[in-house]
């Protein structure tokens, strides 16, 4: 029987296509990672393993630019992700634990709006908005724009998690004369933590990676890592860019892995 069922489910060629899919997804990243360790100045020749381009990122002529860009990127990502996660957690509580209400659909539409509007449109709209109200472009404009588009990314895992938590724990607390606030902070929030953490991490990465919107709203002399990379990359792919890319890739992979492991841990409960 088992073999028959397996037979029904499997289609010849699907496995090879899956492997092809993974190959396509990973090939460019692997190539860049490998070439970032190339000792040669030229991109086309392989002259042996070396860490010189990683050293170049930290000490080379462009290191000051990349350091300040990295600093901006991380600070913006941390603040934007923190605020977006806070806003999203509160909103998710209202949406999932707030009963049925008229503005629920509208609210959901509003929260997911940044996901639906094409990025270039958000970028243009934000630029026009800051221009119209006379808000000088700088780090602040980047931060504000990032908070907005991070909200849905934080919201989705948080609300999904909350929908998976039965309310019996909170009800039990309320039955024992806990206040609503206590039920929220002592019961619901701790149970929500895995969702909140993965929401935060997703928002963090999305902010860290954003190029199009940042490029439109950034001010003079303010770079984030993606805009700094774009500035360098436009004149041709250089080995030090590959080294930075590989490091950024590493950060993303670590963050997503943490998010994944955190998400997984709550299945064991």
């Amino acid at each position: 029987m088992a073999s028959k069922q397996f037979d029904i489910k499997s289609y010849t060629g699907f496995k090879s296509i899956t492997l092809l899919c993974l190959a396509v997804l990973y090939a460019p990243l692997l190539v860049v990672t490998i070439y970032s360790f190339n000792a040669s100045q030229s991109l086309t020749n392989w002259e042996g393993l070396s860490l010189r381009w990683y050293a170049d990122v930290f000490t080379g002529p462009e290191s000051a630019k990349f350091k300040s860009a990295a600093w901006n990127s991380f600070v913006i990502a941390i603040i934007a992700a923190t605020l977006a996660t806070t806003i999203a957690t509160l909103a998710a509580t209202a949406m999932v634990r707030g009963g049925k209400f008229r503005l629920r659909t509208v609210s959901f539409g509003l929260i997911s709006l940044p996901l639906m509007v094409p990025e270039i449109v958000t970028a243009v709209a934000t630029l026009i908005f800051f221009n119209a109200i006379g808000f000088d472009r700088g780090v602040m404009t980047i931060l504000l724009a990032h908070i907005a588009f991070c909200i849905p990314f934080a919201y989705l895992p948080i609300s999904a998690r909350m929908q998976g938590i039965e309310d019996s724990y909170e009800q039990a607390a309320l039955d024992l004369y806990a206040t609503k606030r206590q039920a929220f902070t002592r019961i619901l929030l701790p149970l929500m933590m895995p969702g909140i953490i993965s929401g935060f991490l997703l928002a963090f990465i999305v902010s860290l990676d954003d190029f199009i919107i940042t490029n439109f709203v950034k001010g003079a002399g303010v770079e984030t890592l993606p805009t700094a990379i774009f500035g360098s990359v436009k004149q041709g792919i250089k080995p030090n860019i590959m080294a930075i890319s590989t490091m950024l890739l590493g950060v993303s992979v670590v963050m997503v892995t943490i998010s994944y492991l955190v998400g997984k841990s709550d299945n064991t409960k």
Partner: peptide, 27 residues
């Protein structure tokens, strides 16, 4: 049982930050 109205009274306040942020920064 997951979708409840436990925090019904507070929902306006809970949603307010999202409304304000997204109205100003997206709408």
């Amino acid at each position: 049982s997951a979708n409840t109205d436990t925090y019904k009274e507070a929902r306006t306040w809970l949603l307010l930050p999202a409304w304000v942020t997204l109205s100003i920064l997206v709408l």
